[in-house]
Design a protein around this nucleic acid. Structure first.
Length: 492
RNA sequence: CGGGAUGUAGCGCAGUCCGGUUAGCGCGCUUCGUUCGGGACGAAGAGGUCGCAGGUUCAAAUCCUGUCAUCCCGACCA
């Protein structure tokens, strides 16, 4: 058990923060709300990026890159959009610094004031649609399927590593289509991809659904979401996809000449996932020993640790360990052999557990005699003695099993934390004592939604898409009739 | 942005209320020796603009003002 790591059950926030910092994923930079992603954390993000990028390309998308700075006037063009982001915009007003008159410091040069201020992108819809106007003229230019990997900045008041930082990394897809149906299909396709990515790579079950109007993205006509459940019973919105209708096309005057020769506005979508997924990954699987990584995203999948007293022993073990490492690497497994002499085995065990390495293989003098190795899996913390000759076949199977087990474990937890409530008393009781999702009827009004949020801090996470929640009932708060249950939870 | 707390060596902290030798402790770090199957032990060392900027004072980590950052609770949000 790592020293001084807070227990997950005692102080979840602190536990989360410590796991992120001590496992080497990220830390605060000392500049308000800005995070440093460390090499180990970035390696995981790179894996996420490469899998997602492949999925985007398989569905016909291309990558491009748009500017960081957006003229202020662009935001004025879509009313709801500007309202959504105005409160957290960082604004560039000057373009030059100069030394202070006393020569000791530096100050903003007041003569270098920008005629029009530039906004550091909180999201790129505006500048992208301004560009699309020039790119799109005919139905032959459609669909336009573009993704960008970028950083964005939102001046958040209260930040937490990965979950909410002022600057974060993400991908944002922006597409233009001929028809409404095609755009809706695209928005749904992308939320499906996110759900699949969460399940297959992050081993994280998610609930796919539709946001209520009040939770919608600023400027969207429909927002699709994937909602994951963290181990403290709070929900985390892990990815979104928006059907934007013709709002941005109209705001930025993006028209195309249709097959019938008529000038029409295009239909749009946007969709994104961010480094918040890193936070979701930590909070879905990790435990009191530290990070737990699903094999598909682990930068180190297997660590081999030699146990030795004398130099000769180490040499003999190293020969075996290196041979094993080569065999596993040939199967596409990333392996680290840690033969550093300044740390004892026990220290290494703890360290790699803290870092979430899925499999640890220890080879010591006893194993050398018997032709065995000790294999420890991070998900269950179980250890077993395995014949070294079998490892080459056993390790790949075990990695798959761990990936599967992590998903099943998270799924069981999630499913055990979806609870139906029919009265408001039940509703509150579940939130207070059990946590997780509450399936309850909703009368469909924003007033009831807001009242529930005020009384319980729970919001409607989504109207689920893959669960059939349609049934007649009454809203537990207002008592008005309802046609279906929705998914409530307290959320990050 | 409102309320609360904190900032002292890489990390965790004591010292601050009540100003006064050379600012301490634990972990970590360096060197040497013994160790090595779950965070070893001993000895000797290195490491500090006490967050930053002003002010009060013979004297400031300590008192005052401002400011920046971090954490918690709200409001806001991927």
């Amino acid at each position: 058990m790592p020293k001084n790591l807070p227990k997950r059950s005692e102080d979840y926030s602190k536990w989360y923060h410590e796991v992120v910092v001590r496992s080497g994923l990220a830390e605060n930079s000392g500049v308000r709300g800005m995070m440093v992603i460390k090499p180990y954390g970035y390696a995981i993000w790179e894996k996420m990026q490469s899998y997602l990028d492949r999925m985007f390309k398989e569905t016909g998308h291309q990558n491009a890159y748009f500017p960081l700075l957006i003229p202020k006037s662009y935001f004025a063009k879509e009313a709801q959009h500007v309202e959504g982001f105005a409160k957290e915009a960082a604004v560039v007003t000057h373009y030059r610094l100069r030394t202070t008159p006393d020569g000791k410091g530096i100050e903003v040069d007041p003569t270098a004031k920008l005629e029009e201020e530039l906004i550091i992108r909180p999201t790129s819809e505006t500048i992208i649609w301004d560009t699309y106007r020039r790119w799109i003229q005919s139905y032959r230019d459609l669909p336009l399927l573009i993704n960008q990997w970028a950083n964005v900045l939102r001046w958040e008041m209260r930040t937490r590593l990965f979950l909410r930082t002022a600057e974060f990394l993400w991908q944002e897809g922006h597409t233009a289509h001929e028809t409404k149906e095609e755009a809706i299909e695209e928005a749904e396709r992308m939320i499906d991809i996110y759900a699949r990515f969460a399940r297959e790579y992050m081993a994280m079950p998610v609930i796919k659904g539709i946001k209520t109007p009040s939770e919608r993205f600023a400027g969207a006509e429909e927002t699709y979401t994937i909602e994951a459940l963290m181990q403290d019973g709070k929900a985390l919105q892990s990815g979104t996809s928006h059907f934007l209708g013709q709002n941005f096309a109209k705001a930025f005057d993006v028209k195309y000449l249709s097959r019938e020769g008529k000038l029409e506005y295009v239909w749009a979508t946007s969709w994104g996932v961010s480094t918040r997924l890193m936070g979701a990954l930590v909070m879905t699987h990790s435990d009191d020993y530290g990070l737990v990584l699903p094999p598909k995203l682990a930068p180190i999948q297997v660590v081999i640790i030699p146990i030795f007293k004398k130099k000769e022993q180490l040499e003999a073990i190293s020969t075996e360990a290196r041979a094993l490492m080569e065999k596993l690497k040939a199967k596409g497994i990333s392996v680290r052999y840690d033969d550093s002499e300044h740390y004892k085995p026990g220290w290494k065990f703890n360290e790699y557990e803290l870092k979430g390495v899925p499999i640890r293989i220890a080879i010591g003098p006893r194993d050398m005699e018997k032709g065995t190795a000790e294999v420890a899996r991070r998900d269950t913390l179980e250890k077993e003695i395995v014949s070294r000759a079998d490892l080459e076949d056993y390790i790949p199977r075990l990695l798959d099993e761990i990936q599967e087990n992590l998903y099943n474990r998270a799924l069981a937890f999630r499913d055990a934390h979806i609870t139906k409530a029919d009265t408001f008393e039940e509703f509150k009781d579940i939130l207070e004592n059990k946590g997780g999702f509450v399936l309850a009827h909703w009368d469909g009004t924003p007033e009831t939604e807001a009242k529930i949020k005020e009384l319980t801090k729970a919001t409607i996470r989504c109207i689920p898409m893959d669960m059939d929640t349609r049934e007649e009932g009454v809203d537990p708060l207002s008592g008005k009739p309802s046609k279906q249950r929705v998914l409530y939870a307290r959320a990050y």
